[in-house]
Amino acid sequence: MMATFLSWSIMISQILLALAMACASYRVLWGPRAQDRVLALDTLYVNASILLLTFGIRTGSNLYFDAALIIALLGFVSTAALAKFLMRGEVIE
């Protein structure tokens, strides 16, 4: 009974996360300004990380955790670099 509830809620949360990523992708593609795109890209990374965690729960595999950790790390680095680029026009001064 609870197991069915869990598998249904995993599915629902994956659908919700996919919708969330679609919203963020809209801002990445059509965001009126560059800062909108960067903000949406950061959100996209975080959502991808959450989605991988739900996949981990769905399959009961530990492998997804490492992927989620690395995506979160990459998201931080790329957003920081992009924000720096927006401010100065160059990443490394």
């Binding site: 629902i12 919700l16 996360l17 919708l19 969330a20 919203c23 963020a24 801002r27 959100t43 959450i50």
Partner: peptide, 14 residues
């Protein structure tokens, strides 16, 4: 459900 709902709400706000 709570976590993904909040993430979705955040992106909707975006």
């Amino acid at each position: 459900l709570l976590g993904s709902g909040l993430a979705f709400t955040g992106c909707l706000g975006l």
